[in-house]
Amino acid sequence: MDASVAVSCRSVTKDFGQGESRTKVLRGVDFEVNLGQMTFLVGESGSGKTTLLSVIAGLLDATAGEVVVLGQPLKRLSNHQQVVFRRTNLGFVFQQFNLLPALTAAENVAVPLLAQGLPRLRAIAKASDLLTSLGLGQRLNAFPSQLSGGQQQRVALARALVHEPRLIVCDEPTSALDAATGRSVMELLASFAVRPDRAVLVVTHDSRVFDFADRIAHMNDGIIDRIEQQQN
């Protein structure tokens, strides 16, 4: 496999349900995500983008086909190994931010480090440094409810980056935000997340931010039917 490939999917299918109600959501996806790039996954609602993202992130098992992430075939990992793999190699950004409301911004960002077993104070110190460089140095001890949507998404972004994962997956990171805020979050994502040894995969509807993509994969009814290279 090419060393510049972060994710490779071969004939990946995913069915939900049993018998009569069985639906094929992914119908043979062939797809690659490259290191050092921001790849967008776009397509109509219901086309299977979130499902594919979940399969790549190891949150759902594929029904058939092969998914290799950072050289590791996911099928070969036990449940526990999958959890460990995720916490070392993946960063997540969600549409609804999914911050823990009872934790401060810095504590939220520290969660992936705590999950890895880092002592609390060191984890929070590291998280605070990162938040400061993302421009939230004044709001380290604010709770999510005291932050604007854009600020919350920046905290979520910091949480996805803090443990320096090699693959970052984002599902609709800007669709809960207004246009300007969405763009500024994408700018931070482009400048902080994209590195030569890291891949960023973004699922989005939001055509306002397509210009941030290096590659755009179009999903249609469970398959990827077109890939565009963007010239930046």
Binding site: A57, R86, T88, F92, Q96, L100, P101, Q116
Partner: peptide, 16 residues
Amino acid sequence: LKQFGALKAIGVTNLR
């Protein structure tokens, strides 16, 4: 539940 889901996604084990 959503918060526990996020923790599970981030890589907190079931035991934890």
